[in-house]
Amino acid sequence: MQVKQEYIQLSDLELSSLLSAGDEIAYTEIYNRYHGALYIHVFNKLRHREDSRDIVHDLFISLWNNRDKLVLKTTLSAYLYTAVRYKVFDLISHREVASRYLESVVKFSEQEDGITDYVIREKQFLAIIEQEIAALPKKMRRVFEMSRMGNLSHKEIAAELDLSEKTVKKQINNSLKILRKKLGMAIFTAFIL
């Protein structure tokens, strides 16, 4: 779809309003304005072309699919860069989980048969824990994963996510309360703390 000349002249705010109303030409203009810069931004973080393309592509699909819910509390560019940053975090988090899983499979294959039952139960517990962590609200999960899996301090998380340290601390405490309730004290103490 070709963008009409008058759309090129529109501000981001005007384009956002048109997009929210379902205007495909406004969407195309937003795509044309930001696709290249977002791709470069993601590529500089990941250094992987296909993953970078996929993330930016997913962002624009999500933007279109959720256009009617789009409420900008900041500029369109800030919104897009923040959204793409979360998608990068999600990919990195997924890779870390996959990497840990692969490491556990390798360790499992190297261990003797006598401890097989223990290892299987431990993996089952870890799968349950990962499932409960994944069920946390998105922002809470992100803060929790950065703290527990990324080993970042409250201050580092606050700076990365543009939150106050108090908010980060509260999100982590709330995460721990939810997980403690869902997992039971024994599992929680053994694996989370």
Score class of each variant (00 low, 15 high):
Gly114Glu: 15
Trp64Val: 03
Glu14Tyr: 05
Gly36Cys: 03
Ser175Trp: 07
Tyr118Trp: 15
Lys181Gly: 02
Gly114Tyr: 15
Tyr79Gly: 13
Ile25Arg: 06
Tyr101Gln: 06
Leu76Lys: 12
His41Ala: 11
Ile192Arg: 09
Tyr86Trp: 15
Ile25His: 00
Asp68Val: 04
His57Ser: 07
Ile8Leu: 14
Tyr7Cys: 08
Ser11Lys: 12
Gln9Phe: 02
Leu18Glu: 04
Ala21Gln: 14
Ser20Thr: 10
Val3Pro: 01
Arg33Gly: 02
Glu110Ser: 11
Ile55Arg: 12
Asn66Val: 08
Glu130His: 08
Ile128Ser: 08
Glu130Tyr: 02
Glu6Gly: 00
Lys87Ser: 10
Asn66Thr: 07
Arg49Tyr: 06
Glu96Ala: 03
Thr74Lys: 10
Lys170Phe: 15
Val88Asn: 06
Val168Leu: 13
Asn66Ser: 08
Phe108Val: 01
Ile92Ser: 06
Arg85Glu: 10
Gln5Phe: 07
Ile25Thr: 13
Asp54Gly: 03
Arg121His: 15
Ile30Pro: 00
Asn151Ile: 03
Glu14Asn: 04
Ala98Thr: 03
Phe108Ser: 14
Asp12Val: 05
Asn151Thr: 05
Arg85Asp: 09
Ile129Arg: 10
Asn32Asp: 07
Tyr81Val: 04
Gly184Met: 11
Gln5Gly: 01
Ala127Gln: 10
Ser52Arg: 07
